[in-house]
Design a protein around this nucleic acid. Structure first.
Lengths: 251, 251
DNA sequence: ACTTGGTAGACTGTCTACCAAGTGCCGTGC
DNA sequence: GCACGGCACTTGGTAGACAGTCTACCAAGT
């Protein structure tokens, strides 16, 4: 769950209500900063995170950092080892598989509900995202492609009107985005063709078709990851262990 | 998510590894204590939770309480209002619906995977749980029934071998258990008949059937809740809303 | 009667300091 | 080479302090 909070932070506001600036709790900012640093690789996988270090780095005290780290731990971004500290999570072999399987279930259901509840406005926005995403993809802008992909999926889950699906899917998507950025270019064109078909099914209100396409879509993604993985293994070969900071006797 | 931690805490251990007593972090205990108190109604819905109060009550300092409260907030058990504090979450009208819809998706997929991976041993345990649950149900032990129901569902999700499904489903189930205990007796017998059919499908490795039964099972539960709700509303009077202090058109 | 202004109390959010216990590492001694 | 012991580091938890904010309430003004 996590961030189920109704937060008016971004997106649709009921109407004339405009809640004024509510200063975000520090722990929230720290959390955001850390996930961002993990995703963009500033904090490499397996790296040992020390509370005071991060505190100093971000200019806050230990407390907010601790709270953020615990949340990160709960959501699987870092592993907290009592008495030692936090390590940036190192994804296990089968983890991506499981993640994508979970995503398949969540988003396929979301797509079904989205098809059921879609408004004209929603469909228009979906179409727009498809167009933008395809453009990014064709121009080779990987970052933009991945981001737009995320936005599209997230919009679909939101259209489901089910806050739990939204929340879980958001978590999963974020993780997928972390593990997955390198794969994006490979999937590229096919992925956006599938998005188009999906949007079409939703606009027609065809629940079963939407659900099915979304499931296949995720499945293709999974396959692409495996192919890439196999290729990478063949090339980069033997990397059974990358001891992070071992300075054992250096002489 | 939360508690996705690879933690060997409970469940399947690789083999002879048995981590000896790892003293649970205090915040964990506090978290457990609080959820328990919320579920059993000691902390009523809407109640304002004050950190120092809880700290005193549980004999710890503010910090572990804060950390527990934040986790509870992330998981939707309480709502944290900045600068004011935590309130025990008051479930919205449609929340149970959404919860059960999410559960349907998660557990249906779990059942499918469980059917795919089931071992003889797993099936035996499932059968045992069915027997126990039915016995509880027939003897009118509601608490036992609900608990066993939870154990059965949780075992099935674990059999899926997907840690994300396990984790999400666990969260959802816990929430369902909170909202739902009063409904259990109504569903009673039918529910356990369905469980039996489900276990049969799993034991036969029939994925589609298992998934379908689980989906219908959840759907029936949802329906039962609505029926009960409607009945309760009819009896307990119409309660349109007791607007406390509205005496002016909000421009 | 309704609004405004002011006051007071209660809590949270964050910081600092401190201590105990646990963990990993390294060198010593065998 | 390997076990043992000790050291430095880090978390987990406690205590106290302080500013900012939120709620409620009362009094005076319109």
């Amino acid at each position: 769950m996590t961030t189920i909070s109704a937060g008016p932070g971004a997106g649709a506001e009921p109407a004339g209500v405009r809640h004024v600036k509510r200063p975000t709790p520090l722990r929230e900012s720290v959390y955001e900063a850390l996930t961002e640093m993990i995703i963009d690789g500033t904090l490499e996988r397996g790296r040992h995170l020390v509370e005071v270090e991060l505190a100093g780095l971000l200019g806050v005290s230990r407390q907010p950092v601790r709270e953020a780290l615990q949340r990160l731990n709960n959501e699987g971004w870092v592993d907290l080892r009592p008495g030692f500290g936090a390590m940036v999570h190192v994804p296990a072999e089968d983890e991506v598989d499981q993640l994508l399987a979970a995503r398949a279930a969540l988003e396929s259901e979301s797509a079904r509900l989205a098809a059921r509840h879609a408004t004209k406005d929603d469909v228009a926005r979906l179409r727009e995202l498809c167009k933008v995403g395809t453009a990014y993809q064709e121009s080779g802008d990987i970052d933009g492609t991945v981001r737009t992909n995320g936005e599209l999926h997230s919009l679909i889950t939101e259209m489901s009107g089910n806050r739990f699906l939204v929340d879980f899917a958001a978590q999963v998507d974020r993780r997928v985005r972390w593990y997955y950025t390198p794969v994006a270019p490979v999937r590229g064109a096919a992925s956006w063709r599938e998005h188009n078909r999906l949007v079409k099914a939703i606009s027609e209100g065809d629940e079963d078709k939407a659900a099915q396409i979304m499931r296949e879509h995720t499945e293709h993604t999974r396959k692409a990851y495996h192919d890439l993985q196999a290729g990478a293994d063949a090339v980069e070969t033997p990397e059974p262990e990358a001891a992070p900071r071992r300075r054992r006797r250096t002489n």
